[in-house]
């Protein structure tokens, strides 16, 4: 239903005040505030441990892999889809690289492998992600399968391939160069964090400043109108899942590099957490809306929260409970805000 012109009197002028009126911006401000609140609460409860540089540093090492998965999830959700295979892709990427290192090193062990093989491993992992995304995109945009079922199925295929490659147990013994990606530091900053920040910058530019990002959001807003406006919907969706796959593979590299191992069932809980962070970060699972900053802020606040819980010796399982409860809480809050806004 069209509103009458009288309703558009609210001025929307550019600049900070105009920006603050946007829904995405409001979500982000709320998220930033909640980050600070969690920080204060945790500091008050366990000041010595929570504020230790060790704590922050460890967060900086394990947060990026989940962050990149969440951004991948957000990209899939932008067009109204979802990617349930990201964890499978991540593990498959890590295992492929690991298998490759094993083959290259032969009996001598992977310790001797230098920069060349590591680069090759990274490329192989990313190509795995790209191909996995291509498969998902093909199923979704060409065969028109619902994203939920398509990625649920391919996710199993990817995990199954992990099992076939490893036979079950974890692959260990990655070369030192690979380890450096997950545990090294660059001018004092953990490498995973550097990678994450770069990914964030690149993706937010891609979404906000390029025709590709705009097209994805338009497809998510009204898929039919996008076709009528001449957007190549199938092609764009295909690309978006390839991008999602690549990002998932990147997370897989970080995960296996940090733990120095790769296994078919690593990071299983990341799937839910990635959905939660994406939704919490202001992504509309029905499509059309999502931004990197929101996802990053949601990631930080939830990481702070669970790290605080861990310090208070709350079991990991209860943290799972908190994540789930948070997701439902966010759904309720969004629904309430929608109703108020309508």
């Amino acid at each position: 239903m069209m509103m009458s012109e009288t309703k558009t009197n609210a001025t929307s002028r550019p600049g900070l005040r105009g920006w603050l009126k946007g829904e995405a911006a409001q979500t982000n401000v709320m998220l930033a505030v909640s980050c600070v609140l969690v920080l204060i609460a945790m500091t008050a409860l366990r000041p010595s441990m929570f504020l230790s540089s060790y704590n922050f540093e460890s967060m900086a090492f394990f947060m990026p892999e989940l962050g990149i998965l969440s951004i991948a999830m957000m990209i899939a959700m932008l067009t109204g889809g979802i990617d349930l295979s990201i964890v499978g892709v991540a593990n498959l990427a890590g295992i492929t690289a690991g298998t490759l290192f094993g083959a290259m090193a032969g009996d001598g062990g992977s310790g001797a492998l230098g920069l060349g093989p590591v680069t090759l491993g990274v490329s192989a992992a990313l190509i795995v992600g790209l191909l996995a995304g291509l498969l998902n995109g093909f199923l979704i945009s060409v065969l028109k399968i619902t994203p939920i079922l398509a990625t649920l199925g391919t996710g199993q295929v990817f995990i199954g391939m992990c099992l076939v490659l490893t036979g079950g147990p974890a692959i260990v013994g990655f070369p030192p160069g690979w380890n450096a990606i997950g545990n090294g530091k660059l001018v004092g900053i953990p490498v995973p964090l550097v990678i994450f920040v770069l990914v964030c910058i690149a993706l937010s530019l891609l979404l906000a400043r390029t025709s590709f990002g705009l097209r994805l959001k338009l497809i998510g807003t009204n898929p039919k109108a996008a076709v009528y406006a001449g957007v190549k919907r199938g092609q764009m969706i295909l690309y978006s899942y390839m991008l999602t796959g690549m990002l998932a593979a990147m997370a897989g590299i970080l995960l296996s590099a940090r733990t120095n191992a790769a296994k078919s069932d690593y990071g299983a809980s990341y799937l839910l957490q990635a959905v939660l962070i994406a939704v919490l970060g202001g992504t509309n699972p029905a499509g059309g809306r999502g931004n990197v900053l929101g996802v990053a802020l949601a990631l930080i606040s939830l990481t702070l929260l669970s790290s605080g819980f861990q310090m208070m010796r709350v079991s990991n399982h209860l943290i799972d409970f908190v994540w789930g409860a948070f997701l439902i809480g966010v759904i309720a809050l969004n629904s309430w805000r929608r109703r108020k806004g309508a």
Binding site: S269, P285, A286, H317, L318, D320, F321, G324, A325, I328
Partner: peptide
């Protein structure tokens, strides 16, 4: 009025977390 997939992902995590925790 939320997508069932996302709701049930959440409730699954809540219930498993509570039982195990």
């Amino acid at each position: 009025k939320m997508i069932p997939l996302i709701v049930t992902l959440g409730t699954a995590s809540v219930v498993r977390g509570l039982v195990l925790g």
